[in-house]
Computed example of a mutant assay.
Amino acid sequence: MTASVPPTPVEESRARHRLQLPRDTAPRDVLAMVRNVRPGATEREDGTIELGDDMLLEPDHSPRGAGRWTVEAPRERELPLPEGMTDSHGYGRAFPEGMPFGLEREALDLAWSLGRRLYGAVVTDSGVRLEPHPFQVRDLTVVSPHALAPESLAQLIAPVEADAELDEAPEGVARTGYSLTIPLPEGEEISLRVGLGTRPVALSALDWAEDAAHYELVHLTADPEEDALEVPSNEVAERWQHAYQRIGRLAGLLLESVGGYIVDLEGFLVDPADLL
């Protein structure tokens, strides 16, 4: 019987988690999405993506490896998630002995986000499968060189959201932007907030984006703790999808009117065609 070889100290100091995407996912699409949030990422000749800070995203070149990637980073763990606390990514379930943090957390978050956007999953190095819900992140922002006046925006969206109302600013408070509220069923709302914002990394090459108008579309749930659900019930998932479809319709309408780009809450560009 052959004895197993214990891992070397170098192997133990590295975390390797698997990203499983649909088999027909093009590597160039993965690289493009990675560069939305890590513009300095580079591609080696073998297709490995260097993320920076000693983090890698390696494609599986085996005969059955289509769509499979391995994200590698220095292993860094902290205390476990407190008992009874939930998290939307499922890390508490996957890492009961200690949560990833630092560079490992950054790499794992990127893999989770790629799984969310590209309809995939993450399998941790401990064998736990994490399946991001496609509507876990519903907020979108239209970043545009053109700012609409409050009344103009209200008129623009009235045909598709007749119940939208401009929010009144508290008297005596300096106003740097404005907002509208759109009621949803079950006591939920979409808040459309207009003002200046931080330029997304994905738009760092555009000079006008430094002082661009940000049209933030935010889904406000009746129960804020709902956002921490890893696996929503069918009823919650339907509400998430409904809210995202409404937000997507508004984002598309804004883009047609004022131009610019759509980014999601995690900084990834969103193709308007994907919002239909």
Score class of each variant (00 low, 15 high):
Gln20His: 15
Gln20Met: 11
Leu21Trp: 05
Pro22Met: 00
Pro22Gly: 01
Arg23Pro: 00
Asp24Arg: 09
Asp24His: 11
Thr25His: 03
Thr25Asp: 04
Thr25Arg: 04
Pro27Tyr: 02
Arg28Cys: 10
Arg28Glu: 13
Arg28Ser: 15
Asp29Ala: 12
Asp29His: 15
Asp29Pro: 10
Val30His: 03
Val30Arg: 00
Val30Leu: 00
Val30Ser: 02
Val30Cys: 01
Leu31Asn: 13
Leu31Tyr: 13
Leu31Arg: 12
Ala32Tyr: 03
Ala32Met: 00
Met33Ser: 14
Met33Asn: 13
Val34Asn: 09
Arg35Gly: 00
Arg35Trp: 05
Arg35His: 03
Asn36Phe: 00
Asn36Lys: 04
Asn36His: 14
Val37Ile: 11
Val37Cys: 07
Arg38Lys: 12
Ala41Asn: 03
Ala41Ser: 08
Thr42Gly: 05
Thr42Val: 04
Thr42Arg: 04
Thr42Asn: 01
Glu43Met: 09
Arg44Asp: 14
Glu45Gly: 12
Glu45Asp: 15
Asp46Ile: 06
Thr48Asp: 03
Thr48Met: 00
Ile49Lys: 01
Ile49Cys: 01
Ile49Pro: 00
Leu51Lys: 03
Leu51Gly: 01
Gly52Gln: 01
Asp53Phe: 12
Asp53Leu: 13
Asp53Gly: 13
Asp53Trp: 15
Asp54Gln: 11
Asp54Asn: 07
Asp54Pro: 00
Met55Asn: 05
Met55Gly: 03
Met55Glu: 11
Met55Thr: 09
Leu56Trp: 13
Leu56Tyr: 12
Leu57Ile: 01
Asp60Val: 07
Asp60Ala: 02
Asp60Gly: 06
His61Met: 06
His61Val: 08
Ser62Met: 02
Ser62Asp: 11
Ser62Asn: 11
Pro63Asn: 09
Pro63Phe: 06
Arg64Gly: 11
Arg64Phe: 11
Arg64Trp: 15
Gly65Pro: 11
Gly65Met: 05
Gly65Glu: 11
Gly65Asp: 12
Ala66Thr: 11
Arg68Ser: 13
Arg68Met: 10
Trp69Cys: 01
Trp69Phe: 07
Trp69Gly: 02
Trp69Leu: 02
Thr70Gln: 06
Val71Glu: 04
Glu72Asn: 07
Glu72Val: 12
Ala73Arg: 08
Pro74Cys: 04
Pro74Leu: 05
Pro74Phe: 05
Arg75Trp: 01
Arg75Thr: 02
Glu76Thr: 07
Arg77Ser: 10
Arg77His: 13
Arg77Lys: 07
Leu79Asp: 14
Leu79Ser: 14
Leu79Lys: 13
Leu79Tyr: 15
Leu79Asn: 14
Leu81Ala: 07
Leu81Ser: 11
Pro82Tyr: 09
Pro82Glu: 10
Pro82Leu: 00
Pro82Asp: 10
Glu83Tyr: 01
Glu83Ala: 02
Gly84Cys: 06
Met85Ser: 14
Met85Tyr: 12
Thr86Asn: 09
Thr86Trp: 10
Asp87Tyr: 10
Asp87Arg: 09
Asp87Asn: 10
His89Phe: 09
His89Leu: 08
Gly90Asp: 07
Gly90Ala: 03
Gly90Ser: 05
Gly90Met: 01
Tyr91Gln: 04
Tyr91Phe: 09
Tyr91Thr: 03
Tyr91Lys: 00
Gly92Thr: 11
Ala94Pro: 02
Ala94Thr: 05
Ala94Trp: 04
Phe95Ser: 05
Phe95Trp: 13
Phe95Met: 06
Glu97Tyr: 14
